[in-house]
Simulated scan of single mutants.
Amino acid sequence: MAAIDSALVRVRRLAPDCFALVMATGIVSVAASEHGMPTVARCMFWLNLFLYVWLLALSALRLARFRNEVIADFINPSRGAGFLTLAAATCILGSQCVLVVPLPKLATWLAVAGAAQWLVLIYLFFAATITARIKPGFTRSINGGWLVAVVATQALATLLALLAGDRHVLWLFASLCLYLLGAALYLLIITLVVYRMVFFPLRAYQFSPPYWIDMGALAVTTLAGSLIVLQSPATGPLMALQPFVKGFTLFFWATASWWIPLLVILEIWRHGWRHVPLRYETDDWDIVFPIGMYSVGTYQLAQALDAPFLLPIPAAGVYASLLLWALVAAIGLRRLYRKSLGHRRLPHR
């Protein structure tokens, strides 16, 4: 009974953005596949499939047993956007089914599921935030986690582009529309995020890992735009838009590149200067995902622009993302082991 109660407590406290683990594992797997590590990529795919199903089951159990807590998280502006990691993770897993392990039927089903999740979650989140009767205030509401809305949109655009090809021009058109929508959402949300960071006091502990999505949202936008260029047919109306998409995609990649040194400086300020202790959080996967996505996005951008001089960046980035993924996973498993050890000892006290 004690073990069941302990498990239910963990389910009750399940973070809204728990699917960031799937997002990070999925994109690092794709990066490994692009750089000649098929065994690593496939192992990470099967692990990711297990993690996705496991987290989906835990989320369903939490919704069934602790509905009030789920609703409270969803209508909380600082946490509600985290639920969109479900849609993003579904689409990234679908992209793995195209780029890592050839499972086109599963990829199609995941695209349909991801589109449905995206439609429901993105509209409900913004509707709940807008119509909330009690709002916690600007500084306690807005953070980098809001940009998961952009990540989910562009992850869906990416998967549709991968599945489109020459046979499904409508899918490619839908991908292009989602790409442009994601770009618009980024410009809207990042304005609020930067305004909060610059003009209001930001404590070191408040600079949490989701702020790395400031860059990650741009990286996945780069990936989506690059794939749209690569998948566009040689003739037709979409071909005429290629110069625009190329320029816009390069704009987002350049901005993502600008963010990286600033985010590293802020991490040094947080942990080195202000001495915020390093400890595992679910949010840590929000750092792994942007770094992995930047590597994959840059690799595809080099193909789309025929710019091989960009390839050394993802060639180094894939190892950085693999190392960071392994480090965060090891710290997380160590914490889980210590917690389970503590629960086993508890009855003997």
Rank of each mutant, 00 (worst) to 15 (best):
P277Y: 05
A302E: 03
P277D: 12
Q303H: 10
T255E: 05
Q300G: 09
V264N: 10
L278W: 15
D284T: 08
L310N: 04
G272P: 02
Q300S: 05
L310D: 05
D306Y: 07
D286G: 09
Y299K: 02
T298G: 13
F309P: 01
I291P: 08
W285E: 03
I268V: 15
W259S: 03
L310S: 03
D283Q: 11
A304G: 11
Q303F: 02
Y280A: 04
Q303E: 14
T255N: 03
T298Q: 11
L278R: 13
F289Y: 14
G297Q: 04
P277S: 08
P308M: 07
I291V: 15
W269Y: 06
S257N: 06
V288F: 12
L262T: 09
P290M: 04
Q300E: 14
L266I: 09
L263P: 09
L305H: 04
R270V: 05
R279Y: 15
G272W: 11
W273H: 14
Y280H: 14
A256M: 01
Y294A: 14
Q303T: 09
F309K: 00
I260L: 15
A304L: 11
P261V: 07
D284H: 08
H271Q: 03
H271S: 09
L266D: 12
W259M: 13
F309E: 13
L311G: 02
D286Y: 11
Q300F: 15
D306Q: 04
Y294P: 03
Q300P: 06
D306P: 02
I260V: 15
L262G: 07
W285R: 01
Y280K: 09
A307E: 07
P277I: 05
L305G: 10
A256P: 15
W273C: 07
A307S: 01
D284G: 01
L310R: 01
T282E: 15
L263W: 01
L266K: 14
L301D: 02
V264Y: 10
R279W: 15
P277W: 03
P261D: 07
L263A: 00
L311C: 11
E281G: 04
I265D: 04
Y280Q: 06
I265M: 04
Q303R: 13
G297D: 09
F309T: 14
L262F: 10
P290V: 10
H271E: 10
R274A: 11
D306L: 03
F309W: 15
V264C: 07
E267N: 08
E281M: 07
D283R: 05
P308C: 06
I291N: 14
I291K: 12
W285D: 06
L278Y: 14
H275N: 09
R274P: 13
P290A: 05
P261N: 00
Q303I: 03
G292Q: 01
D286F: 12
L263Y: 01
V264P: 13
T298M: 03
P308L: 08
L301H: 02
G272S: 10
H275G: 00
L311H: 06
R279E: 14
M293K: 01
L301S: 03
I265F: 14
L301Y: 01
Q300T: 07
V296R: 08
P308R: 06
